[in-house]
């Protein structure tokens, strides 16, 4: 079921999922590939996101990802998710700063 997207001013959308093989959080890039760094995510407006979401969902099995959905971000560089949940997905568990996604290769 698709929720209507209500974006505040200054917000855009990114697509996210988990990788099938290792479960890691991934973000959809402009070239259609998935990357674990939100900094490489394509920043989309609502219409672009709708098209991209359809395509990415269709190709999920081939791309080796599960559970594709869109989520709101602050339109800054790198994009920063709006909700606590997505911040934690983007950056790693807050209780283990040593596992921050940013510091991974």
């Amino acid at each position: 079921m698709k929720r209507p997207v209500r974006l505040e001013p200054g917000q855009k959308l990114v697509l996210t999922a988990n990788r099938l093989l290792d479960g890691r959080t991934v973000w959809w890039g402009a070239d259609g590939t998935w990357d674990s760094h939100i900094g490489r995510a394509a920043i989309l407006d609502a219409d672009e996101a709708e098209v991209a979401l359809l395509r990415a969902t269709e190709q999920a099995q081939r791309d080796g990802v599960v559970g594709v959905y869109d989520t709101a971000v602050q339109d800054v560089v790198p994009p920063e998710p709006v909700t606590v949940r997505e911040k934690i997905r983007a950056h790693g568990p807050t209780v283990h700063p040593e596992f921050a996604v940013e510091t991974e290769q």
């Binding site: 479960g23 890691r24 959080t25 949940r85 934690i88 997905r89």
Partner: peptide, 15 residues
């Protein structure tokens, strides 16, 4: 459901 029956969840960052 089949993986759950064998204790494997998909969480936020990994399985």
């Amino acid at each position: 459901p089949l993986r759950l029956m064998n204790g494997l969840y998909l969480q936020l960052h990994a399985y």
